[in-house]
Design a protein around this nucleic acid. Sequence first.
DNA 1: CTGCATCCGGGCCGATACTG
DNA 2: CAGTATCGGCCCGGATGCAG
Lengths: 231, 231
Amino acid sequence: MAVKSYGQYCALARALDVVGDRWSLLIVRELLDGPARYRRLLDGLPGIATNLLADRLRQLSDAGVIEHGGHAEYRLTPWGQELREPLYALARWAVPVVMRRPLGTDTFRSHWLAHPLAVIYAGCDPARRPMTVEIHVDGDIMTLQSANGYVELRSGKATKPEVVLAGPPDAILGLLAGQLDASTAKAAGLDITGRVHHLAELRPTTLLRAATSDMSTNEANGTSDVGRCTS
Amino acid sequence: MAVKSYGQYCALARALDVVGDRWSLLIVRELLDGPARYRRLLDGLPGIATNLLADRLRQLSDAGVIEHGGHAEYRLTPWGQELREPLYALARWAVPVVMRRPLGTDTFRSHWLAHPLAVIYAGCDPARRPMTVEIHVDGDIMTLQSANGYVELRSGKATKPEVVLAGPPDAILGLLAGQLDASTAKAAGLDITGRVHHLAELRPTTLLRAATSDMSTNEANGTSDVGRCTS
DNA sequence: CTGCATCCGGGCCGATACTG
DNA sequence: CAGTATCGGCCCGGATGCAG
């Protein structure tokens, strides 16, 4: 179990008893992309100590969040996979601190792009422009493909990309999310080839406004202390 | 900031840099009920050390999640209030470990009931039966009121309750969530007065099935490692 | 080489005492 | 009431060792 159980009869506290420890949710993030071996988890979790990874894997396994399949592969249980929603909700909440603060000295792994892009291009939009975008980032090459209203990211080169993006992840993400225009992205170190303005037609019409909301405005919050009905 | 920043350019990691520390999300839980003074936070967070509460309040304040208003009152910023969704998502995910494991030696505070009840009775259901339920728990008395399709919980006695429930929180919650029938709840120490079967008409027709899902079933998860479009 | 276990220093956590 | 100060213990983090 966790560092120590909170010992509170509360759903949130019990959730944190299971996945509230340091690194635990990031391990789940890695496993959301599918089963992974130990070494791959280490690579996807820069900064973690090997013993900590082993400890967390044991904890999560005992709690029923992951399971230790054959070939030393770890995978999420069905219950563990249901963490995708709370995890994406937390990530969406953190959009301001991602967009407002540049990459800095933070590490990055190319496969992390899949999650924010899944949020940005969520769902099916029949009006979405079909196109192919090749992305060079972190010494890796990935392909963003729009077809039949859906957008998917896969690893590897594209055959005939309409746009090629190469540069730091924050510039790529800022451009794809619509937070940066092409010239600003270029100033941030992004190399753009092709019809960049077509990228705007990948995003659905109504776009995440949270990215532009101010984090530090002052305003009173609700005063009722019980029974707020959340629709 | 946190114990130490993960140093990863990833929305989830940056979210955890802000609210990933021990107790942080539970402090946010307390403040979701409205502004609170220091002492009230201590009462609502059984087990926390005073210095840790002070540290976390400072961190959250620096990060822009909460603000220190007049009269030593702490309140969520607008950005902090947006944590309600990720937090409820985590709590919903933990329903199995709440329903399957009894209260045990865990502590409980009556105002915590507001959150699970808000989830159980979320939204407006015009067909919902109007009624009043008085709840005695943790040496406290609260009133669950159904009117105009909405269900609200407030502290204090009811004037003419159709049902009065008195007992341990797990029995109360199990009964209200429909996980326990009346006789089982009584066996768990619950005192029931009035037309208990009317309680079933408080819940919407489609009910949280997650509560009954098995936590430890074995099944392969998805294999695609990138670009899963979450509708 | 992968998949851990062991060891150890530093820092956070947790309990208590203390101050304005 | 609202915190600050202090101190043990344990977890975290990094390095290293070792078995398959």
